[in-house]
Design a protein around this nucleic acid. Structure first.
Length: 485
DNA sequence: ATGTAC
């Protein structure tokens, strides 16, 4: 492939760029990048655009390979990548979904004011840290039987319906009601089951977190009110995924699908793009196992949500009038889904791979809760540790240009190892405490990996997607408490 | 992201 530069792109708008399909002979669809000129320049620092061009050679692609402004290099596919394939002629690729299957974010809203909460923030941070197990390889108090885990795979967040802290609205306000159909635990290895049994209800490490935020700015009052977000009041974000369970499923199927690549004669520019035809036995088995991990992750966020509610109750009940936490939304940002999209004016079922990209359905889209039909789907964009997060909504343009998808965060500019070389965890901890953030972190090297300087400016990422029209600003959240593994 | 290499 010839080197990719600014000149390789056609400018569609100030925030949308396209590498045409004739850039190299193996491309089947164009590569469409949503970014400001500055963030597009940043993308040349790693292989993310090259990876998107590689993806564009996969069989059965539809419309374009899209890349979000928070892109960075990943396994085969760039993180921030969206690829839709034809369900009859196309492929499914585990690398297009990621190792942390159904990693995602849940947002809870409260009517607690900052003034009310301030005296209790330190206790609240400690209680959240105590009730929510976190860290690499950390297990849960609860150990599931294999039969329990089979049920978890099939029922997803519904499994927590009996928990006194689960509310009916939680499920209604979760992507796909917290349960994907077509999960088959019979397609999950015993090794994955073994890892999964021990980790349900744990946060993990890396960029996973629980954060108590203050709603600091409102850009869209109608949408914010529909979501229950009000300036000066607290909100909570839970960011985690399917832990070792999803990781093992991805590992297992990356290996198995290597056989499928040879068997079906698929030509790949990069071995990491390992895939199988959707219609094949291998492809169907991966999808069935992936959905088990997706359901596990939906439930994992539900269980942690319930722990967060318990922590709020213990610390705030009797002291703060309305300490209740109401769900705003829960979205996946590492997932493969069958969805209906208009392609060249024709409605078509597409297998949408979203890796480090969230769903962002516009107003009127089927599957959104009634209260979000007019405003569009809430899009949750956490910033890097210690920086602001954004709440956005999907738009008609996102439905037309990005298969109803948007960015998922700030996006790395430094690798984990590079961040550890450049940042001392203890110094960072002191800096965060100095600006008034209550932080509970399991490991100092883990903290260094997540340093804000290792990430892009989330505000610039958001300006890009808003400028491109694929999302609309609703609210800004600023961190008060951060719990990290 | 991840029992950060079976």
């Amino acid at each position: 492939m010839q080197p990719i530069t600014q000149k390789s792109f056609i400018k569609i708008s100030d925030f949308e760029w396209e590498i045409p399909v004739d850039f190299c002979s193996d491309m089947r669809v164009p590569v469409r990048v949503f970014a400001s000129q500055a963030l597009l320049q940043d993308a040349f620092k790693d292989q993310s655009i090259e990876q998107a061009v590689n993806v564009s050679t996969l069989p059965g692609l539809v419309e374009a390979v899209m890349v979000m402004p928070d892109m960075h290099q990943g396994y085969g596919f760039p993180i921030g990548g969206v690829a839709g394939t034809d369900i009859e002629t196309g492929v499914i690729s585990p690398g297009g979904i990621g190792y942390d299957i159904n990693c995602g974010v849940r947002l809870l809203a409260s009517r607690i004011t900052l003034e009310e909460a301030t005296p209790f923030l330190s206790d609240l941070a400690s209680m959240l840290n105590q009730l929510c197990p976190s860290g690499v390889g950390v297990g849960s108090q609860r150990k599931l039987s294999d039969a329990d885990l089979v049920e978890v795979c099939i029922r997803g967040a519904n499994w927590a319906k009996g928990d006194p802290y689960t509310e009916p609205q939680d499920l209604q306000r979760t992507e796909d009601q917290g349960c994907l159909a077509g999960a088959d635990p019979g397609k999950v290895s015993s090794r994955a089951m073994e890892r999964g049994r021990k980790q349900l209800g744990t946060l993990g490490s890396g960029n996973h977190f629980i954060e108590v935020d203050l709603v600091t700015e409102i850009y869209d009052e109608v949408a914010a009110e529909a979501m229950g977000l009000f300036a000066g009041e607290l909100a909570v974000q839970v960011h985690t995924g399917s832990r070792g369970f999803g990781h093992q499923i991805c590992t297992d199927y990356v290996r198995r699908l290597q056989g499928a690549v040879a068997k079906y004669g698929i030509k790949l520019p990069d071995k990491q793009l390992v895939c199988a035809p959707i219609a094949s036995e291998e492809g169907q088995d991966y999808l069935a196992a992936m959905r088990c991990a997706a359901n596990y992750a939906f439930l994992n966020r539900q269980i942690l949500t319930n722990k967060v509610r318990q922590a709020f109750e213990i610390v705030l009940a009797g002291k703060v009038d309305q300490w209740h936490l109401k769900q705003v939304y829960d979205i996946a940002h590492n997932i493969g889904k069958f969805e209906h999209h208009l392609v060249d004016g024709v409605k078509k079922t597409v297998c949408v791979h979203r890796k480090g990209a969230t769903r962002a359905f516009g107003p009127g889209t089927q599957g959104l809760p009634a209260e979000y039909q007019e405003i569009g789907q809430p899009v949750l964009v956490p910033g890097s540790m210690g920086t602001s997060s954004w709440v956005l909504t999907g738009t008609h343009t996102s439905m037309e240009r990005s298969f109803g998808s948007c960015c998922h965060g700030a996006g790395r500019v430094m690798s984990r190892s590079e961040a550890k070389r450049n940042v001392w965890g203890e110094t960072l901890l002191k800096e965060l405490e100095k600006v008034g953030i209550e932080i509970r972190a399991g490991s100092m090297s883990g903290l260094a990996e997540e340093a804000p300087q290792a990430y892009k400016d989330v505000d610039q990422v958001v300006q890009s997607v808003v400028g491109a029209g694929i999302a609309k600003k609703v609210a800004v959240l600023t961190p008060l408490i951060v719990i990290k593994g």
